[in-house]
Design a binder for these strands. Structure first.
Lengths: 243, 243
DNA sequence: TTAAAAGCAAGAGCACTGCTCTCATTCTTG
DNA sequence: CAAGAATGAGAGCAGTGCTCTTGCTTTTAA
C-alpha cells in the first residue's frame, strides 16, 4: 500500500503536500478567514481550477489543515509527556510540563490554534476525520492522571449522585484505568485548560493578566489539584485508586 | 444630546438599527463568516453602497455586533445575579446561577457566542470600544466573590511567592474589595468557565460529555471552590477576608 | 427666503473570491 | 498500440468588499 506505483501517484502526493504547505504559510500569515485557494494556486504557479483536483473545496483544504494542527499539538503534548516521564518527574510536574507545552505551541501558532480551538469555520459538525487527532492532547492528560492513580492514588472528593452514571460511562469509554470520580474532573480540567489558553491567545487577558507565564503555571497547578494529583500544594481530601 | 434634532438624524439612527437587526438575523442564521453586506442591503431594499454611509466597513459592522453581544450576555449575567441576590441565595448558589445563565445564553445564541469568545474575526486586537462591555460578565463574578468575602470570608490557599506582585496588581486594578490571594484564582476561573462553555458550544464534548447540564453544574461548583466560596462541597483551607 | 453646504442613495465598476464547466494534454493500463 | 483515466489550463458564473461619480434632499447660514 505504501509503495508508490508510478510517477503520477508520486506527483500527486507531492502536489498535495505543496498545496498544504503553501496553505499553512498563508494560514500562519493571515489567518483562516483570509486563506484563498486562488492565492495558493497563484503562489504555486498553477491554475486555480487545478487545485480542485486535489481538494474538492476550500473547506476540505481547511479540514486537512485542521487535522494537521491537531496532530501537531498532539505530538507536542506527547513529546512533553515522554521527556517528563524519562526524567522521572513527579506526576504533578508531568501535568505542568504537558500543559505548558500545549500553551507554548499555541503561542507559537496562534492561527492554527484558532483554527482548531476557536469558532468552527466550515459548518457546525466537525468532520469525522478530525475526532481522532483532536483527542490526542486529552489522552495525554488521561495518561498522566492514570499513571498517578496507579502509583500514588488520587485525592478526589466523592462522586455527586446525579453525576454517577455519567462519570461511570466516561471512565469506561475514555479512561478505562481511571476510577469514575476522576473522569468528570479530568474532562472539565481538559476544557478549562483550553479556556486559559484561549483567553490568552485571543486577547481576553489584555490589561487583565500581565505576568502570563507564572499565572498560567499557577492556574494549571491548581487544575492538577482538581483532578486529584497529589503534591499539588495542599493535602488530600479522599484518596482513591492505588490498588 | 439625546434630543433628536431633525428628520435626518432620526432616520439615521433608524436605518442604523435596521442594518444591525438584519445583520444579527444573518449572524444567527449562518454565522459571522457568511455575513454579507450586500445581502443585508438586499434584504433592506437599499443599494449595497448605501450601507457604507452607516458602517465604514464590514469589520466595523461586526464590531458593533460584538459590542451588542457582549452587552447581551453581560445583561443576562447581571440579571441572574440580581435575582439570586433578591432570593437571598447563598454565595455558592449565586455563582452557579450566574454561570448557568451565561451557559444558557451561549446555548441560545451560539453564533453570537462564537463571535465574542471564538477566534477573533477582524484582526488580532479587539477594538477599544469592546473592552468595556467585554468585562461585564467578569465584574459580576467579581461581585459574587467580593460579597462572599465580606460576609463569610473566603477559603483560599496562601499566595505563591512568584505570583504575589501580579496578584496585588490584579486585585488593586480590577477588584478593590478582594484580597490578592483571591484575584488570580478568580481570573483563572473566569477563563475556565468559558473553556467549559466553548468546548460544549464548539462540539469538542461530542461523544465525550453527554449529561452536559449536570456536568456543567458540577464543574462550576468545583470552580466555585477554587475561588474560595465556602459551602462548596468541602471544608476551608485557610480563611481570608471577613474583616 | 434663498443660496451654499452637507448628507444621502443609487449605479457603475474594480479586484477579488469559490467553484464549474469544457477542452487539450499526459500518463496508465488492457 | 489504443482505450481510458487522470491532470492542467482557460473561460466563465455568481458572489463578495469597497470606491467613485452622479444626482437629489435636507439642513444650515446669509
Amino acid at each position: 500500500m505504501s509503495t508508490v506505483r508510478g510517477a503520477r501517484e508520486r506527483a500527486r502526493i507531492e502536489v498535495t503536500a505543496a498545496i498544504k504547505d503553501e496553505a499553512k504559510k498563508q494560514l500562519a500569515a493571515e489567518g483562516a478567514a483570509k486563506l484563498s485557494l486562488r492565492a495558493v494556486a497563484r503562489e504555486l504557479g498553477m491554475a486555480s481550477s487545478a487545485i480542485y483536483r486535489y481538494f474538492p473545496s476550500r473547506d476540505e483544504l481547511l479540514t486537512a489543515l485542521i487535522v494537521d494542527a491537531y496532530d501537531s499539538v498532539g505530538e507536542i503534548a506527547e513529546a512533553a509527556h515522554r521527556t517528563a516521564c524519562a526524567d522521572a518527574a513527579t506526576h504533578l510536574a508531568r501535568w505542568v510540563a504537558v500543559t505548558c507545552a500545549v500553551r507554548d505551541w499555541a503561542l507559537a501558532h496562534p492561527h492554527e490554534y484558532a483554527l482548531i480551538y476557536g469558532s468552527p469555520v466550515p459548518g457546525y459538525t466537525a468532520p469525522q476525520a478530525t475526532i481522532g487527532p483532536a483527542s490526542r492532547v486529552g489522552f495525554v492528560l488521561i495518561a498522566v492522571v492514570t499513571d498517578a492513580c496507579r502509583t500514588d492514588g488520587l485525592a478526589l472528593p466523592p462522586l455527586a449522585d446525579d453525576l454517577r452514571a455519567e462519570a461511570e460511562r466516561m471512565s469506561a469509554d475514555l479512561a478505562p484505568g481511571l476510577p469514575p470520580e476522576a473522569a468528570a474532573p479530568l474532562i472539565a480540567a481538559w476544557s478549562q485548560l483550553f479556556g486559559l489558553i484561549s483567553f490568552e491567545i485571543f486577547g481576553q487577558f489584555h490589561r487583565v493578566v500581565e505576568a502570563k507565564e507564572v499565572f498560567f503555571r499557577e492556574a494549571v497547578t491548581e487544575l492538577a489539584r482538581t483532578v486529584g494529583l497529589l503534591g499539588a500544594r495542599n493535602g488530600a481530601r479522599a484518596t482513591a485508586g492505588k490498588g
